[in-house]
Amino acid sequence: MVKHHCRMVFKFKLGFFTDLHGSEYSFKRSLNIAKSKRVDFLIISGGLIAKEILFVEDIGGRYFLNGKKVNLNNLNEDALRSGKYIVVDKKEVIEDIKSDKSKLEKIVIEKASEQMSRWVKIAEEIFRLEKVFWSPAHGDIPQLDSILKNYGSNLINENVINLEEIQIVSLGFGSPIGNSYREIPDSELYIKGKSLLKDADKERLIMNFHMPPLNTKLDNAKVGLRKSHVGSKAVLDLITEFQPIISLHGHVHESTSMDKVGETIAINPGSLYQLGDPSIVTFEVHKELKSFGSVNVSKYVIKNIEFVSTNPLDVI
């Protein structure tokens, strides 16, 4: 019988969070947790931008939202917490913006750009930019990629990157819901995913696909009064086929969980962005060397997975 023993060659720690939808509180708190957990690298996945714009009427220095008088400071604070963009202007300007699709889009681009310039600065202060990877996804405007690039951030969506000895393959497209950016049919998602993965090295592969795999613990959404599986068959098939060491997902905010697809650990940290709360998962990638007599075989394994939703060290 051949004796074998195991020793660790290296390890590093990754943090992953997703679906911030414009919540500044959620973003800062997740970053602080990543720092307190001493992660080496961080992946911030989409949707990054807010889903909603609040139009506030300025009537002689008094402010009204949907006809109700509001305190602008409180409203701004709430918007930073729950992830909304605010436009303050005269009634006729607001009507004009609302009735013109291109003006509305211009506002979204402006607001997203303003927010990302802050977020990238904050990420640089708390970490260093080369340790933070951004992966825009479903719900993010197409212009977001160039906005983030202009601020000097590492963009990894629709790409294969090497990190230490690990490969990360990222794809942000989601299933069609009819009103979102970056949505494609599942059949196309499979083709795009497959072409990104075709040269991947399964032994050291991390998949970062925004859509969760279908019929798992990761894709349970509330539809009306009941829960149903809303994940992607394409993503499930790709994980089954390529068997990465871990796969990272989002999209279904209420489905914070971990599951196995074959040998692959699949994870969805979920999102509590409306509350301004953090949702982040951290884990370690270990490279172990197994010796079988005179033969050494290396293997990458995932250890110490931790889901963190709140933390006493949260500082806003």
Rank of each mutant, 00 (worst) to 15 (best):
E92H: 08
N73D: 11
E95F: 05
L104Q: 11
E77D: 13
K98H: 05
S82Y: 07
K98M: 12
N71Y: 03
V70C: 03
K90P: 00
G61V: 09
N71D: 15
S99N: 14
S102L: 14
F64A: 08
S99Q: 09
E105W: 11
E92F: 10
I94D: 00
K84Y: 08
L80K: 15
N73V: 04
I94Y: 06
K101T: 06
K101A: 12
E77K: 14
N71I: 05
E77R: 14
L80N: 13
N66C: 05
V70E: 01
I59S: 10
N76P: 00
G61K: 07
A79T: 08
V70K: 02
V93E: 10
I59L: 11
K91I: 12
R81M: 15
I97N: 06
Y85A: 07
R81K: 15
K98L: 14
L80P: 00
I59E: 08
E105V: 13
I86K: 09
I86F: 10
D96T: 07
V70N: 00
E105A: 14
R62Y: 06
N66S: 10
N66D: 13
I94H: 02
R81C: 13
V93Q: 02
D78H: 06
I86H: 12
E95S: 11
R81Y: 08
G67S: 04
A79N: 08
S102W: 14
K103H: 07
G60D: 15
K68P: 00
L65Q: 03
K69S: 02
R62H: 05
K68I: 10
G67K: 05
N73R: 13
S102K: 15
V93R: 12
S99Y: 04
S99W: 00
G67D: 05
S82K: 14
G83E: 11
N73W: 01
Y85K: 03
K84V: 03
R62G: 02
E92W: 07
S99I: 01
Y63R: 03
D78S: 13
F64G: 07
G60T: 01
N74V: 03
S99M: 06
I97W: 05
N71K: 09
N74L: 10
E105Q: 14
